[in-house]
Design a binder for these strands. Structure first.
Length: 473
RNA sequence: GGUCCCAUCGUCUAGAGGCCUAGGACGUGGCCCUCUCAAGGCCGUAACACGGGUUCGAAUCCCGUUGGGACUACCA
């Protein structure tokens, strides 16, 4: 099993788990599972000023919600400083890295000058062969990049990409405060953790040649690289807060199912013929790099919403009871601890499944089933709770009072005969009743609604509606 | 500025030289169903960025142009 697949997702805890990161994690996960390999989670928190514990927690929460279970970790780079230190000292000893005494301020100034003159803001290598180091400064450590020749990145998605070594900078691998930097820690960790495939965003393609040189200096074999295309906002700019919600947790709170988000994310850049909806097992089975596109994808909330509605329809009412419960409590439509009858709630939910695109919508629609009193939508009330429909409501109420088995089929009979007796279309009876019991002009089939509501609530609401009309006139 | 990546309907994509008068999905328009709203069904709408090659033949291969993106930090 020496060549067992080992991949990793390595987020930086400088923000919540966002859409782009989640997709990178997902592709790593699918690749690992497809190959019976290992999926490793590593927190890249070497930037101590921007990393927070809160974000680490949030990222893990997002990963768990998406069901992207990892096999190892989370490792934290801040726990591994001694390892980087050791590798850096070795490079120093072997003359493959050197101390640099330039201060950040000096460096920044030279950068600006170079930029102003239209030159490349590359480090000039002035500390490469320093004879007399300034005594009072703590140096950073720079990696000695080859200055000529070219290097080829053989990418799983992009194929061979050629870079000119002269273009590469002597990058800092250890800061003057002794902490390591990104391009160094990734390599050390990927070596140390036996990562076989580095699957990450396109934005890292330019870093790859530098990292390859570090691998080679360290004397290690290269992993395979695969650079995923980016996710863009509607204006084709990199996806950010400006485009609306970007954190995975925000989608959970907006009532999306994690399976729907996963399904949506995977289709951003990956395809399997014409198939749009996949189970996670199918994704694992079908996943392959051959079907990953090269171009960036625009995040489209409309399609995500559609997928979510598909998943809500596919779910069983029983599953939805559990999923919608937190939203019912949050609204609040029911009080925490107030245990509703699950069977009854399932039945109510089953009427709403194909009418709810999110769990939030589902919870809100459930209100008129659960609440003691409903609120009338102003327009609905004006249009249907008036003199014109009074006789219809009164007739239906009177007939319903005589129904013993209060089920949809029996209720329908009442409506049909009322329609004949009053010589009016069914709609002229159903709509005012609908407003009377739900407060709105849209709802599931009225017979079903009344059955679920039960005889008592139905009659009470009809009575109230009749009362409202009578008072008005 | 330099380096690198990318380029099919508004959006996600199928397409690996002839199967393409370019297919599917979201959206959107119309119709059907119908107690409302949905769901569902049917029918539309809409794309190979541009210019050169290569080839009997190009959305597919090559070059250039244009456009977009990424990187260019003692961030990751």
């Amino acid at each position: 099993m020496a060549d067992a697949v080992r991949v990793r997702f390595a987020p930086s805890p400088t923000g919540h788990l966002h859409i782009g990161g989640a997709r990178t994690a997902l592709f790593n996960y699918l690749f690992a599972r497809h190959n019976n390999g290992s999926f490793i989670l590593r927190i890249e928190d070497t930037d101590r000023t921007r990393s927070t514990e809160e974000y680490i927690g949030s990222i893990l929460e997002g990963m768990r919600w998406l069901n992207l279970d990892w096999d190892e970790g989370p490792y934290r780079q801040t726990d591994r400083f001694d390892i980087y230190q050791r590798y850096a000292q070795n490079l120093l000893k072997e003359g493959k890295a050197y101390p640099c005494y330039c201060s950040p301020e000096e460096l920044e100034q030279r950068r600006q000058e170079a930029l102003a003159q239209g030159k490349s803001p590359k480090y000039d290598g002035r500390c490469r062969n320093l004879n007399s180091p300034p005594p009072d400064r703590k140096p950073a450590i720079r990696f000695m990049m080859p200055q000529e020749g070219e290097i080829i990145v053989d990418d799983l998605i992009h194929g061979k990409v050629v870079f000119d070594n002269a273009q590469l900078d002597d990058l800092i691998i250890m800061r003057s405060d002794g902490t390591p930097t990104y391009n160094f820690t990734v390599v050390v960790d990927d070596v140390d953790m036996n990562i076989t495939h580095v699957i990450r965003g396109d934005d890292h393609l330019n870093n790859t040649p530098k990292q390859i040189h570090i691998y080679q200096s360290l004397g290690y074999e290269l992993p395979s690289f695969g650079h995923l295309p980016m996710i863009l906002g509607s204006d084709k700019a990199r996806l950010s807060k400006r485009h609306g919600a970007t954190s995975v947790i925000a989608y959970r709170d907006m009532g999306y199912l994690s399976e729907a988000l996963v399904n949506y994310l995977v289709r951003l850049g990956w395809s399997y013929g014409d198939q749009e909806v996949f189970t996670i097992d199918e994704l694992i089975r079908y996943f392959s790099f051959e079907h990953i596109g090269k171009s960036a994808a625009v995040f489209n909330p409309e399609k995500l919403l559609w997928l979510n509605s598909q998943y809500i329809m596919k779910s069983t009412p029983g599953e939805l009871v559990d999923l919608v419960m937190p939203f019912l409590i949050k609204e609040p439509i029911i009080n925490e601890g107030q245990i509703s009858d699950r069977v009854w709630l399932s039945k109510a939910i089953s009427t709403l499944q194909e009418r709810s695109r999110t769990l939030v919508e589902l919870a809100q629609s459930l209100t008129y089933y659960i609440a003691d009193e409903i609120e009338y939508n102003v327009k609905a009330k004006e249009k249907f709770l008036n003199e014109k429909y009074l006789a219809n409501l009164t007739e239906v109420k009177a007939s319903l009072e005589t129904v013993d088995t209060f089920v949809a089929a029996e209720i329908e009979k009442v409506f049909t005969s009322a329609s004949q007796k009053l010589e009016t279309k069914l709609g002229n009876i159903a709509q005012p009743v609908r407003v009377a019991v739900t407060g709105k002009t849209e709802s599931p089939g009225i017979f079903e609604v009344l059955e679920i509501l039960g005889k008592e609530k139905t009659l009470n609401r009809l009575a109230r509606a009749i009362h409202v009309i009578t008072m008005k006139s």
